[in-house]
């Protein structure tokens, strides 16, 4: 029989989070969004001719973590660090000091150089994880769409930590 440390399984993040919150004394479980139908849009042009934007849940390194809101920053130069303390990433097992490990701007520039992607979005968008589904749908999602339209983006790569 294998020991626990060698057992490979997909973590049940919803169940872990439920138990964690109950242990913190919350009496009502968080209800994750769930839908039967899922929209699908076929890209209008090949990726090699498309402008690709990146959206992260990290915040700018000089942002105020208590002010969690959508913000856009230039994709060039690539920031040397970003604020991630406000997010629930796995602080026991890894770190976020290496920006390309969670914000793929360097990789996308290389895909552009190689002709695989048309161009990078001129800005990347920071959208801190939001507990309220209502706020996400009423404010954040339309806000991101508006930024994408302003920047004439064809495709969006969303990278939550």
């Amino acid at each position: 029989m294998k020991s626990a440390s060698s057992k490979r399984y997909d973590i049940d993040y919803m169940e872990r989070t439920r138990l964690y919150y109950r242990a913190m004394g919350y009496e009502t479980d968080y209800q994750w969004a769930h839908f039967e139908s899922v929209p699908f849009t076929v890209p209008a042009r090949p990726v090699r001719e498309s402008r690709l934007a990146v959206i992260t849940t990290a915040m700018a390194s000089d942002a105020d973590a208590s002010q969690r809101q959508l913000a856009a920053y230039p994709s060039n130069p690539i920031p040397a660090s970003l604020l991630t303390d406000h997010l629930s990433w796995d602080k026991d097992n890894t770190h976020t000091r290496d920006v390309p490990s969670f914000l793929p701007l360097e990789q996308i520039n290389r895909l552009v150089e190689e002709g695989f992607v048309g161009s990078p979005g001129p800005r990347f968008y920071c959208l801190p994880t939001e507990y309220s589904k209502r706020t996400t749908m009423k404010e954040d999602a339309p806000g991101v769409l508006e930024l994408c339209r302003q920047d004439r983006v064809d495709l969006a790569l969303l990278v939550p930590l």
């Binding site: 991630t84 997010l87 990433w89 796995d90 890894t94 390309p100 490990s101 990278v159």
Partner: peptide, 9 residues
Amino acid sequence: PLGNPCGKP
């Protein structure tokens, strides 16, 4: 682990 979706640091 959550934190490095784009690969190991």
